[in-house]
């Protein structure tokens, strides 16, 4: 589904990705983890074509994405920081995205699920961070696409919304076989619950890839959160 080869990216003097290779096959939930500034968001943005890589090749659905844009029709993306045009109302924003994508959508259920009905006619600037994130989730999940990219989906969510989000992710996975979901998160409990496989980025490369149990074996830890912390410290010692 996604092939990444020899990816390099530098932001002025800051080398973020240094020859990253990644191959994500069809189906499953992949958690992209790593310390702050390890290039998780950059990797996601390169896959989406928002950031342009200095070197390396990326293919999505078997085709190179360079200078392409139509493939984004098949991707749902949940950005890390929910920035919306502030003078739009929630209803107008949803209508606009639907109009731009021209796909069938099922926003009604999602609005119901996250209790956004009373906010539909409010301007986006007046919403709280958590409510904005809910709108963000509705916008990302209302279309049906084979690839889902979620960048820090849990930011600012209250517990009940968090449960709804987890259910939503599980439902997406069960709906059809072969659906691929990429998630980044710093909430290890959340990752442990939803992810099938872990991809750990460190210093612009993939440092570890495998299932949670493999990770625990490798680090000889019994707790997932400690295991993740252990790989980070192990390299600094080495």
């Amino acid at each position: 589904m996604i092939q990444v080869q020899g990816l390099h990216k530098k932001f002025s003097k800051n080398q973020v990705l240094t020859g990253l290779d990644l191959d994500i096959e069809n189906g499953g939930i992949f958690a992209i983890l790593g310390p702050n500034g390890s290039g998780k968001t950059t990797l996601i943005k390169i896959i989406l074509g928002m950031v342009i890589a200095d070197k390396g090749a990326v293919s999505v659905f078997g085709k190179p994405i360079k200078n392409k844009w139509k493939y984004r029709q098949e991707i749902k993306y949940l950005p890390q920081i929910a920035n919306f045009p502030s003078n739009l109302r929630v209803r107008e924003l949803i209508r606009m995205i639907k109009d731009l994508r021209q796909q069938t959508s099922e926003e009604e259920q999602l609005i119901e699920l996250f209790g956004l009905k009373p906010f539909l006619d409010k301007k986006l600037a007046t919403l709280s961070g958590g409510t904005k994130q809910k709108v963000n989730i509705v916008l990302a999940f209302m279309f049906d696409s084979p690839l889902l990219i979620l960048d820090e989906p849990t930011t600012g969510l209250d517990p009940s919304a968090l449960i709804s989000l987890k259910e939503l992710i599980q439902k997406e996975k069960e709906k059809e076989k072969g659906k691929t979901i990429l998630v980044t998160s710093h909430i290890m409990q959340f990752v442990e619950e939803v992810a099938d496989e872990i991809v750990y980025l460190l210093e612009g490369k993939i440092y570890f890839r495998g299932s949670i149990s493999e990770l625990m074996e490798k680090t000889t830890q019994t707790d997932f959160e400690h295991a993740i912390a252990a790989i980070a410290t192990k390299t600094t010692n080495a």
């Binding site: 989406l48 844009w69 984004r72 950005p79 920035n83 919306f84 995205i97």
Partner: peptide
């Protein structure tokens, strides 16, 4: 002012 709007649009299937 429309930076946010632009970022939202960039993730959509639209030509830059």
């Amino acid at each position: 002012d429309s930076k946010e709007f632009t970022e939202l649009l960039l993730a959509q299937p639209l030509k830059r």
